[in-house]
C-alpha cells in the first residue's frame, strides 16, 4: 500500500494502519471507491439511490465481517440494523456518493441488500394516511395530542 494511496485490499486486516492513514478527508472519498464517484448527473436523471434508500446487511455480509476492511466493514457492521444512505454517510463521515458506490459494490457481492424506495409506493394515499396517523399520535412537548385539544 503506497502510503495510503491505494484502496484497502480485501486481505488487509482492519487494524490501525502503520504510518500515515491517508490523504486529507476531501480527497479520501475517491480512494475508497477506487476513483468512482456516483455522479450528480445520475441524481438529476433520477438514477442515483435516494438518500433515504435503506441498506441492510445480509447474512453473507455479517459472516464476511472478519474479512472486510475499513469502510466496507463499517458499513456492513452498521447495517445489521437497517440504515439509510444518509445515516451511514453521517455516522461514518463519508460522502453520500461514496456510500452509494460502496453500497453498490457490497450489494453486487451479496453482502448488503439495497432497498430503493418505490416512489409510487411512498406517494400512495394509503401510505401517506399511515404517516399522517402516526404523526398525529405524537404528543407535543406538553404531552398534548393534536386531536385532543
Amino acid at each position: 500500500m503506497a502510503d495510503g494511496q491505494s484502496p484497502h485490499g480485501p486481505g488487509e486486516e482492519p487494524l490501525a494502519p502503520a504510518g500515515p492513514v491517508g490523504p486529507a478527508p476531501a480527497v479520501r472519498p475517491f480512494l475508497v471507491t477506487a476513483g468512482r464517484v456516483a455522479g450528480a448527473g445520475e441524481a438529476a436523471s433520477g438514477r442515483a439511490m435516494p438518500v433515504e434508500t435503506q441498506l441492510v446487511a445480509t447474512t453473507e455480509g455479517i459472516d464476511a465481517l472478519g474479512r472486510l476492511s475499513f469502510e466496507q466493514h463499517d458499513i456492513v457492521a452498521a447495517c445489521r440494523v437497517p440504515q439509510s444512505i444518509a445515516e451511514i454517510a453521517a455516522r461514518l463521515r463519508l460522502h453520500l456518493n461514496v456510500v452509494r458506490v460502496l453500497a453498490e459494490d457490497l450489494r453486487s457481492v451479496g453482502q448488503l441488500s439495497v432497498h430503493v424506495p418505490d416512489s409510487g409506493v411512498t406517494h400512495d394515499a394509503s401510505v401517506l394516511r399511515r404517516v399522517i396517523d402516526g404523526l398525529r399520535a405524537i404528543p407535543d412537548s406538553r404531552g398534548v395530542l393534536r386531536d385532543s385539544d
Binding site: Q54, P82, S84, G110, Q111, L112, S113, V116
Partner: peptide, 23 residues
C-alpha cells in the same frame, strides 16, 4: 414488502426487512 431490493443479491438475503422510508 415495504421496499423492494434494488436487485436480488447474488446470494445474500437482508437479515432484517427495512422500513419503507417516506421523505
Amino acid at each position: 414488502t415495504p421496499t423492494e431490493p434494488l436487485a436480488r443479491p447474488a446470494a445474500g438475503q437482508a437479515a432484517v426487512r427495512p422500513p419503507l422510508p417516506v421523505k
